[in-house]
Nucleic acid binder design. Structure first.
Lengths: 360, 360
DNA sequence: GTAAGCCCGGAAACCGATTTCCAAAAAGGA
DNA sequence: TCCTTTTTGGAAATCGGTTTCCGGGCTTAC
C-alpha cells in the first residue's frame, strides 16, 4: 500500500544468491576491481538472470558524482521556432547518446514566472550535470537560481538571447537580423518602413536580453544609414502571436492610405500570415501596395497568400553550437576557460512579398 | 577537478555545529519526532544560517519512496496540437503544484524509435511517481518498458490514442472525428468525397492505436450510411506534415476535373493550408469547386486563403481529464480500481471552406 | 521521598550502492 | 620444497539521509 519500491533486485540479493560479498559483485559488474574472469562470468550471469539493475540513486549517492543528465530549460514554448530549437538541440544531444528532458511552460501559461521558478528549483534538486537554457523567455528571477546552480558546480549553456549569467552563450543576433530585413526594404527603394514589435504579456527585465529592444536597435540603425527618421506611428505593437497579425492589421488600416508605410518587418511568419490575410481582405495588394518581410522562415511562409520573403533563423546551427560548447566543457573539463559568446546571424530568403515600391 | 558535488552542507555539518546528533536534526527539521520546541527553533535557525538543503538523493534512498515527480512522455512532438496538449497538461499539473519535465523527440528525428527507447530507460531509472504518455507517436517497443515500469509500481496514464497498456486512458476519438467530418460533407450534398491519410515515415504497429486506421473507419462508416462506395483513388496518401499539402494537391490535380472529388477531409489545418494554396494556384475555387474540412482548428485555420472549416480537438478537456485521473490514482490510492478509458470527441467549427456542391 | 510516567535527545541500523584496504590463496621463482 | 610475489575475494567505511528504539532526566502523584 505504501509507495515503496517493490521487488527491486539489489546488489545484496545477487551477492546472497552467489554466497559472495556485495563488494565483489560490485567490482565484478563495474569491471574495476580485482576479480578473476571466471568469477566475473559467474556473477554477471547470475546478475542478468535475477534481472539486477543498479539503483541510480544509491550509485550517485555513493560516488558523489552528479548525475550525467542534461536538461533543457526553455522558459516558454511558443509557436514554432522555439520548440524547433529545443527539439534540434535534443537531436544533437542524441548523437552523443544523451537524452535531455525539457522543462518549459506553455505560451498561454498564466504565471510563467512562478512556474519557471518551481521548475528551476525542481531542476536544481535533480542535480543534473548541465542545464541548457533558452534565455529568450526566461523570467529574470530564474537567473538567481541558475547562478546558485553554477556555484554548486553545475554547468549552464545559454542560447538565443544574451544572458546575464557568466556562462557559454550562443546568441542569435536579432539586431542584425532586423537590420538586414529593414535594409533589404531600403535597398529596394522603400522609404516609409514599419516594424511590428511584440508587447509581451509577460516581460523579462534583463535589459540586454530584451529581444524587442534588439530588434528596434537594428531597425533604427538601418534607417539611420539611409538618413531616415523613424516615425512612432510606424512602430506597431501587438500582443500574443495568436492575435498579433489582426492587431497589426487594424493599426495599419487605421492609417490613411497616403500615410501608410510601403514596407513592413514582422516578428514572425505566423503573425505575418494573419496580417497579410487581414490587409488583403481590406483591399491592400501585396507587394504592389505593401512589401512584407517575415521572420524565421517557417513552413507556412511558402503558403501565405503571397509567398513570404523571410529572414531565416539558423536553428540547426544554433542547436549544434550549443551542444558543441557543452561537450567541450564536459570533456575538456576546461573549468578555467573563459566563457564564450558565439553570435549567429541569419540570412534573407526571398520570395514574392517584397518588391520595389510602386507609386500610385 | 572531479565532478564531485562541492561544499554541500550536510545533515552532519548542521549536527556538528550544534553538537547534536544527525537524527535529532533530522527529526527536528522534518517535524516528526520528539524534539522540544526550543531545540527545534535552535536547529532550524542554524540550518537556515548554514544554508542546509537536504540531499534529495539520500532522502529518496533512505525512505524507499519513489520520487514524487511526474513525467510527460510524448514520443514525437510535431506541429501544433501535440505540443499544445503536452503544455496544457503541464499547466493542469501546475494547479497541483506539480512540475513535469517533458520527454520527447522532434518530428524530424531520424530514429524516433531508438531515441524513445533511450528516453524511456532514462525515465525508468529516474523512478518517477507517474508517467503521462501521449500514445499517438510512441514506438511499440516502448510499451514493454512501460509495462516493466508499472510492475515496479509506477503509474501510467495514457492519452490521445488507445494504448495496449493496462492503465487509465484518455482517448481522443479519431474515428468519430472523421466520421463527423465526412458526414458534414455528405449532409451538404456531396457524394464524391476524399480523405487525406498520413503515410507515416515511422509507423507504430500497435493496431488499435493506429490513428490512420481509426480515421479511415470513421470515413467509411459515414460513406456507408449514405450508401456510397469509397474509391481508392480518393484516398490521398501523404508523408510528413511539412510537405503533405503539396503531395495531396499533386494527387488531386492529376485527376481529370470531372473525376475529382467535390469534398475532402484533411488531417490537419497546416496540411489543409498548403493543399488549398496549391490547388487555388491551379485554378480550383474553394468552396465552389471543392469543399475542404481541416482538423484541429488551429489558429491558422482563420487565415487560410478561404477561412477553413475544421474539427476541433478539445485539448483542454483532454489535458484536464488526464490530470484528474492522475490525481485520483495518487490520492485515492485506488490501486485496485479497474483502469478506465475515457473517450473524448470533437466538434465542428464552421467557416467558409465548405458549401453544398455547385454543379458545373 | 520515592515510584511511575512522559518527554526529549542520542545511538545505531538501514537504504543500495562504491571504494579502500587487507588477508588468504594461488602463482611463480630459486 | 620453501619463500616471495601477485592475484583474488571479503570486511568495513562511506555517501547523506530516515527511522526505530532506548535510556536519562524531568515532571507529576501518592
Amino acid at each position: 500500500m505504501t509507495a515503496r519500491i517493490n521487488n527491486r533486485v539489489t546488489l545484496r540479493d545477487v551477492a546472497g544468491a552467489l554466497g559472495m560479498d556485495k563488494s565483489t559483485v560490485s567490482n565484478a559488474l563495474s569491471g574495476k576491481g580485482n576479480v578473476s574472469a571466471k568469477t566475473r562470468a559467474r556473477i554477471t550471469a547470475v546478475a542478468r538472470e535475477l534481472g539486477y539493475e543498479p539503483n541510480p540513486l544509491a550509485q550517485r549517492l555513493a560516488t558523489g558524482h552528479r548525475n550525467e543528465t542534461i536538461c533543457l530549460f526553455s522558459g516558454v514554448l511558443d509557436t514554432g521556432i522555439t520548440t524547433d530549437k529545443v527539439l534540434l538541440i535534443q537531436q544533437a544531444l542524441a548523437e552523443w547518446e544523451l537524452e535531455a528532458p525539457i522543462y518549459a511552460c506553455g505560451k498561454l501559461s498564466r504565471e510563467p514566472g512562478r512556474t519557471q521558478m518551481a521548475q528551476i528549483r525542481q531542476l536544481r534538486r535533480q542535480q543534473p550535470r548541465a542545464i541548457l537554457c533558452a534565455s529568450q523567455l526566461v523570467d529574470i528571477s530564474v537567473y538567481t537560481e541558475l547562478e546558485a546552480y553554477q556555484r554548486d558546480g553545475g554547468l549552464v549553456i545559454s542560447y538565443d538571447t544574451p544572458s546575464p549569467l557568466d556562462c557559454d552563450q550562443v546568441i542569435f543576433d536579432r539586431e542584425d537580423n532586423t537590420y538586414q530585413a529593414a535594409r533589404h526594404l531600403l535597398l529596394q527603394g522603400h522609404r516609409r518602413i514599419a516594424i511590428g514589435l511584440s508587447r509581451l504579456i509577460w516581460q523579462p527585465t534583463y535589459s540586454e536580453g530584451d529581444t524587442q529592444q534588439q530588434r528596434l536597435r537594428g531597425f533604427f540603425r538601418a534607417l539611420e544609414e539611409f538618413g531616415i527618421l523613424p516615425l512612432p506611428e510606424w512602430q506597431f505593437r501587438h500582443g500574443s502571436y495568436e492575435r498579433g497579425g489582426e492587431e497589426m492589421a487594424r493599426q495599419f488600416l487605421s492609417l490613411a492610405p497616403a500615410e501608410r508605410p510601403t514596407g513592413i518587418c514582422i516578428i514572425n511568419d505566423h503573425v505575418a500570415l494573419a496580417f497579410m490575410a487581414e490587409v488583403i481582405r481590406a483591399g491592400v495588394r501585396i507587394p504592389q501596395d505593401l512589401s512584407v518581410i517575415g521572420h524565421d522562415n517557417q513552413p507556412i511562409a511558402a503558403y501565405c497568400p503571397v509567398p513570404l520573403t523571410s529572414m531565416t533563423q539558423p536553428t540547426e546551427r544554433i542547436a549544434n553550437t550549443v551542444v558543441e560548447l557543452l561537450m567541450d566543457r564536459i570533456r575538456g573539463g576546461g573549468a578555467d576557460t573563459v566563457p564564450q559568446r558565439i553570435t549567429i546571424s541569419s540570412e534573407l530568403v526571398q520570395r514574392l512579398s517584397v518588391s520595389p515600391p510602386i507609386p500610385g
